[in-house]
């Protein structure tokens, strides 16, 4: 089965990732080079997308900014996946009191809107990229744990898990060999769907000045920087905005396509909510 659109989307994603990795090779400038004599330069051969209010090359900052977005999103996802796999499978496979306690805690977490809860966490932990990552990871953890738990519950009842119990396979080995592959394949796809959403969170918090701090190149920060000059130079806000839009769209459509292809239910958390 070949899905041309999916291949195209992966190529686009690959281009973004590669340009983030090889940023120094692509542009001659550094994102922090301030050149006050050359402020708000228009599009030219030396500055492909012009310069901003401090004379920094916009194109360079955009490329370096993708590093920030990708790394923070990746970190968030890794934290979420590792913790939710542990919590969800413990709750699902062991059941009983442990399940009850963990799931009631996650119920409480689920009642708050994630962005508000993230704001609350940052209020407690303080401003900064690491704190943003922790805040976003924790606010989404409950949802993911629930999904993992419901997949574990479903797989646990499968006859091959019963059969493997009757072969005397140790519990941990059953979880790793029979249940984890099912969980990973499904949660992995749902996670790609969410990557875009997380990216918006990071950019949004940075825009509010709560995440990455000013001199660092990051898309949300760039929009924030350009905000005072919106009347004279709206393009400075449009470039990073477009970058966020395109990347989020790529992540979302990859997720959607994978989800349709492997027929995965998105609303598992609601299913097992009772």
């Amino acid at each position: 089965m070949k899905d041309k659109k999916l291949i195209f989307l992966f190529i686009m994603l690959g281009v973004i990732i590669l340009s983030a990795i090889f940023a120094p090779l692509i542009t001659p400038y550094s994102p922090y080079d301030i050149d006050l004599s050359n402020r708000f330069a228009s599009i030219s051969s030396s500055h492909i997308l012009g310069t901003d209010h401090l004379g920094r090359d916009v194109f360079t900052r955009l490329i370096y900014g993708s590093r920030m977005s990708l790394i923070s999103v990746l970190a968030i996802m890794v934290i979420i996946l590792v913790l939710s796999l542990i919590i969800g499978s413990a709750a699902g496979f062991q059941g009983g009191k442990l399940d009850n306690v963990l799931m009631r805690i996650s119920d409480v977490m689920l009642t708050f809107p994630t962005f508000i809860l993230a704001l609350f966490f940052i209020g407690v932990l303080g401003v900064g990229l690491i704190n943003v990552i922790i805040a976003i990871a924790f606010t989404h953890l409950a949802w993911y744990s629930r999904i993992v738990r419901s997949i574990v519950l479903e797989t646990k009842e499968k006859n091959y898990v019963l059969a493997s119990k009757c072969m005397g396979t140790p519990k941990l080995k059953i979880v790793i060999k029979h249940i984890m592959p099912q969980v990973l394949s499904q949660v992995g796809i749902l996670a790609t769907l969410d990557l875009g959403h997380m990216m918006l969170h990071v950019a949004g918090l940075s825009f509010l000045g709560l995440g990455v701090q000013a001199p660092v190149a990051e898309w949300g920060v760039m929009i924030n920087d350009a905000a005072p000059f919106i009347r004279q130079h709206p393009e400075l806000m449009i470039y990073p905005g477009l970058c966020i839009f395109i990347t989020v769209a790529i992540f979302n459509s990859i997720g959607e396509r994978l989800k349709d292809r492997y027929k995965i239910k998105e609303d598992r958390s609601k299913e097992s909510a009772v």
């Binding site: 006859n159 091959y160 005397g168 140790p170 592959p181």
Partner: peptide
């Protein structure tokens, strides 16, 4: 004491090969 279930499709992990499936009990002992 071993068991054979009614539905062979559901009683064996669909991601595994014949070799892996038959090995599982052997490896346990």
């Amino acid at each position: 004491m071993q068991i054979v279930f009614q539905d062979p499709q559901s009683s064996m992990n669909p991601n595994m090969t014949v070799f892996q499936i038959i090995c599982e009990p052997v490896n346990n002992y």
